[in-house]
Design a protein around this nucleic acid. Sequence first.
DNA 1: CTATGTGCTACACAAAGAGTAGCAATTAGC
DNA 2: GCTAATTGCTACTCTTTGTGTAGCACATAG
Lengths: 116, 116
Amino acid sequence: MASDIPTPGQPVRGSKSGKPIMALFDLLGRRWALGVIWQLSEGALTFRQIQARCESVSPTVLNSRLKELTSSGLVARGASGYELTDMGRELFGLLKPFGAWSQRWADELLDTQPKG
Amino acid sequence: MASDIPTPGQPVRGSKSGKPIMALFDLLGRRWALGVIWQLSEGALTFRQIQARCESVSPTVLNSRLKELTSSGLVARGASGYELTDMGRELFGLLKPFGAWSQRWADELLDTQPKG
DNA sequence: CTATGTGCTACACAAAGAGTAGCAATTAGC
DNA sequence: GCTAATTGCTACTCTTTGTGTAGCACATAG
């Protein structure tokens, strides 16, 4: 449903105050939301291409995420498929360092917990 | 269940490759995961304090998130409650800019979509 | 032995997501 | 116009995840 897409300024799941950061966390804390943004950072992709890159995402969920991200102004439909908007690319800019960090996290985690 | 906590290096929900970034996105893309890290950034909090700050989080889910974040090395139990580890604080460092950005996002969004 | 606060568990219910099938629309070749 | 392939997407059933409320076991304070 379009109406439960988290929007800053109005109450969202888990935050009656509607604080922008909570709306954002609600939006990004849904399955595949972060992954879709990540995939689109390299350029526009069609629906089926996104599906293929996010191995197990069901079309139902992908469609929901795309609608949510679209009406949140992070994704738009261009000639060659779905792509990040300016705001979407800004957000990816913040997300980008997570890539390198996750590597270090993985190393440290596998070091301290060698198979658990 | 402890066994389906996303861990880099082994397949996670949505990524058979076990890429660290996908494990991280899986971990953070669960309800309240981002919010809990955000709340803990200001200092240690007890279980009930976290509950109170994340208005509608159920104890079931909060307990799951805390277990996941703990065994992922981002959160630990100290004398005064749950708190971020060094890695957790590092991750919050990456997350921090999202606060300011979400404000601008909110402004721009409410400007282009003035109520819907 | 009550009173309060803690971390949590146990349900019953609801919402979100997975997985598969398949349709309407478009493009291409014949 | 008919077939075939590809696209975005809906429909459906089933499983997983999260909500909401109650309440227990433990601790500290009186």
